[in-house]
Design a protein around this nucleic acid. Structure first.
Length: 551
RNA sequence: UGGGGCGUGGCCAAGUGGUUAAGGCAUCGGGUUUUGAUCCCGACACUCGGAGGUUCGAAUCCUCCCGCCCCAGCCA
C-alpha cells in the first residue's frame, strides 16, 4: 500500500482516500480497448492515466480487450494495440486479458439474475423496443414479456445460446425500471443474438453480452479497484453499479469518469479514422498524418514526448479542446534535447569555391549536438564544390542584414561547422535561372572568427557535392484545414488538407546519414526534425519523414 | 424537454472561505547564439459564465438565470 504525497487530480485524491481508509489495499486499474481499430492520441491519455495510477500507487494495470462484439473486432487490431501500448513504455505483466475469456462466467451470472427474477427474455424487436423505451421526457412502457416465468426465460436463453433462435427476435434484458429518468436503466439489453464467429471464441457462442452487462463484471473478475473511463459513460454508472450490486461478485469495483482528450485540427473518432483508411484518404492506419499512435510513431514522434504531453494534461471533468501547439511543444522539447544534428539541403544550388583546390578535401568535424558531448561527432567532407539551399541565396545585395541573414552577392556567410565564404558571381541559364554560384572561401575560419572587417551575415547549412547522399523528404502538414473538422455541417472529408503531404525528391544529405535507421531521430539543422520512414525507405532510396519543423 | 456533467486570460489549467488569482502552451518585447533553433530575461485576468444573497472577508457557501457537453444502439 502506497500513497502519493500530493494528489494532483481528483482520481488520485479518491485513491488516496480509499487507501488511507483501508477500503483498498492494492490499486488495480485497467486499460480496456475494444479491438475494432487502432489506438489514437486520445487513448494515449487514458493509457498514461491508467498505467500511471497503478505505477504511482504501487499497484497493477491490466490490458484488457473488451471484445464483446464480433461484428467489429479483429485480431489485427489486437496485435496493433499490444504493440502500441508496449511502445509507449507500459507493461501489464503476463498476458493481456480478454472479455471473451469471461463469457461463460458472464453467462452464469446472467442465469443467476433470471433466477432471481431480475432479468427476462424479451421478444420485442429493435423497433418495438425503441417504442417501448419512451423518450427523454416520457417514461417507457413495460415489455409484455417482462413477467415471463424464470424457468421459461432460462430455457429460451439456452436456446439463444445454442443458435436455435433467429437474430433480432429475442434479447435478455435486465428488469430494472422502465420509468427511470435515466434511459440506461429502462430494462437494458444484457445479451443479444449474433450468429457470427468471434475472433477468439469462434462459433462457440451465438449470443454476446452487451457492454453494460460485461464491463463491471470484467472489472470485478480482475479485482479492478478503480475503473476509470471517459465522461460519456457517466450515465452508465448507475447501471454499472446495479449489476455489481445485484450479482455475487468477488469484489465491488467503482467507476470514475474523466474528460477525454480533444485536440484541434485533429480527429479522434475511431469510426472516422477507419473511414479515412478504408476510403484511402491516407496511407493506412499508420500514415504519418494520422493521430494514431502508430501514425505518430512512424511520423517520428517519440514515446517520451507523447507521455510527457499526456502527463501534462489535466485529469478533470471538463471537456476542453487542447491546442495542438501544446502537443507540438513536447515533441520539439524531446527532439531538441535528444536528436542528433545533421545537414540536408532540400533545394540544392551548386556552389564552386574558386580559391579551393580541385583535388583538395578536408574532413571537418561537427558536433552531434550543440550542447551534448555524449553524442558522437560527425565528419563532414569539405570540397571545392558544395550544395547550399537556393533559398539561402539572394542576388539582391541591398537586402538588410537583419532581414536576410543569408548569402547575397558580394557578402559573407558562415557555412555551418565550416568556413566562411563569399558569393562572387551567379551563373544563369538562358532563362535567367541561377544554375551555379561562384564563391570564394576565407581560409582559417573553421572554428575561428574571420579576420577584422569580415562579418558573415549568418549561418547556412551545406553539403559536399561530391560526398553526399541523395534522399527524398516527405513533408507533412495538418491533415485538416480547420480547427474542428468534426463539427459544423458537412463532412470532415471536405476539410482534408490537400497539401498535407509534400514530397521533395533528390535532396542532398550529409554522408553520415547513409547509416540512418528506422527509430533514430535527427534534426536537419535549420530545417526541422526528421526520421527514416519505415515504409518507403530502402537501401536504394533513403526516405525521411519530417516529424515537425523548427519554430 | 427528463436525467447526468461542466463553465477561471487566445488554449489547457491550479485553486477545497483570508494567496499580489499558480503553472504550461500561444502571443509580444529584449539579451545570448557558428541552427532566424535552443537558452535567458520581461510583458500578458482589479478578476473567476451572469445577477442577487450569506460573511469582517467569496473563484471558493446559498438562490435564480445563461451557455456548452453526454444519454432515447440488440455499439463501446
Amino acid at each position: 500500500m502506497t500513497d502519493i504525497d500530493k494528489p494532483s487530480n481528483f482520481i488520485q485524491q479518491i485513491i488516496n482516500a480509499d487507501l488511507n481508509a483501508g477500503r483498498v489495499k492494492e490499486v488495480v486499474t485497467r486499460f480496456p480497448p475494444e479491438p475494432n481499430g487502432y489506438l489514437h492520441i486520445g487513448h494515449a491519455k487514458s493509457i498514461c492515466l491508467n498505467f500511471g495510477l497503478a505505477e504511482q500507487f504501487g499497484g497493477h494495470c491490466n490490458l484488457r480487450f473488451d471484445d464483446t462484439n464480433p461484428e467489429k473486432e479483429d485480431d489485427e487490431y489486437v496485435q496493433a494495440i499490444i504493440d502500441d501500448v508496449r511502445w509507449l513504455g507500459f507493461d501489464w505483466g503476463g498476458e493481456p486479458r480478454f472479455a471473451s475469456d469471461y463469457f461463460s462466467q458472464l453467462y452464469d451470472w446472467a442465469k443467476y439474475l433470471v433466477t432471481e427474477g431480475k432479468a427476462y427474455i424479451c421478444e420485442l424487436n429493435a423497433e418495438q423496443m425503441r417504442e417501448y423505451r419512451g423518450t427523454l421526457t416520457e417514461a417507457g412502457t413495460n415489455s409484455p414479456y417482462r413477467e415471463r416465468p424464470a424457468a421459461e426465460s432460462l430455457r429460451l436463453l439456452e436456446q439463444m445460446k445454442v443458435g436455435a433462435i433467429d437474430e433480432g427476435t429475442m434479447t435478455l434484458r435486465a428488469k430494472i425500471d422502465m420509468a427511470s429518468p435515466n434511459i440506461n436503466m429502462r430494462d437494458p439489453v444484457m445479451y443479444r443474438i449474433k450468429k457470427m464467429p468471434h475472433h477468439r471464441t469462434g462459433d462457440e457462442w451465438n449470443i454476446y453480452p452487451s457492454y453494460d452487462f460485461a464491463h463491471g463484471q470484467e472489472d470485478a473478475i480482475e479485482g479492478v479497484t478503480h475503473s476509470v473511463c471517459t465522461l460519456e459513460f457517466a450515465a452508465n454508472r448507475p447501471l454499472y453499479e446495479w449489476f455489481t450490486q445485484n450479482l455475487p461478485l468477488p469484489c465491488t469495483p467503482h467507476q470514475y469518469e474523466f474528460g477525454r482528450l480533444n485536440l484541434n485540427y485533429t480527429m479522434t473518432s475511431k469510426r472516422k479514422l477507419k473511414q479515412l483508411v478504408d476510403e484511402k484518404h491516407v496511407d493506412g492506419w499508420n500514415d504519418p498524418r494520422m493521430p494514431t499512435i502508430s501514425g505518430l510513431r512512424r511520423r517520428g514522434v517519440t514515446a517520451a514526448s507523447l507521455r510527457e504531453f499526456c502527463d501534462s494534461l489535466a485529469v478533470a471533468k471538463t471537456d476542453g479542446i487542447v491546442d495542438v501547439a501544446q502537443f507540438e511543444h513536447f515533441i520539439r522539447e524531446d527532439l531538441n534535447n535528444n536528436a542528433m544534428r545533421a545537414m540536408c539541403v532540400l533545394n540544392p544550388l551548386k556552389i564552386t569555391l574558386t580559391n579551393y583546390a580541385e583535388d583538395q578535401r578536408e574532413m571537418l568535424v561537427a558536433a552531434g549536438h550543440p550542447n551534448r558531448d555524449d553524442l558522437p561527432q560527425r565528419e563532414l567532407p569539405f570540397t571545392r564544390e558544395l550544395y547550399i539551399d537556393r533559398n539561402d541565396f539572394n542576388e539582391d545585395a541591398t537586402l538588410s542584414r537583419k532581414k536576410f541573414k543569408r548569402l547575397v552577392l558580394g557578402d559573407y556567410v558562415r557555412l555551418r561547422s565550416g568556413y566562411v565564404i563569399r558569393a562572387d558571381e551567379a551563373l544563369k541559364d538562358s532563362d535567367g535561372e541561377i544554375v551555379e554560384l561562384i564563391c570564394s572561401y576565407v581560409p582559417g575560419t573553421v572554428g575561428e572568427d574571420p579576420p577584422e572587417g569580415i562579418r558573415p551575415r549568418g549561418v547556412i547549412h551545406w553539403v559536399s557535392a561530391s560526398s553526399c547522399i541523395d534522399c527524398d523528404l516527405y513533408l507533412y502538414d495538418k491533415l485538416f484545414t480547420v480547427a474542428a473538422p468534426d463539427a459544423g455541417e458537412g463532412s470532415f472529408l471536405d476539410y482534408i488538407n490537400p497539401q498535407s503531404l509534400q514530397i521533395v525528391r533528390h535532396c542532398k544529405a550529409e554522408m553520415g546519414l547513409a547509416a540512418a535507421t528506422v527509430g533514430q531521430h535527427y534534426q536537419f539543422e535549420r530545417e526541422g526534425y526528421y526520421c527514416v520512414d519505415a515504409k518507403h525507405s530502402s537501401a536504394e532510396k533513403l526516405v525521411f519523414n519530417r516529424t515537425i519543423n523548427l519554430r
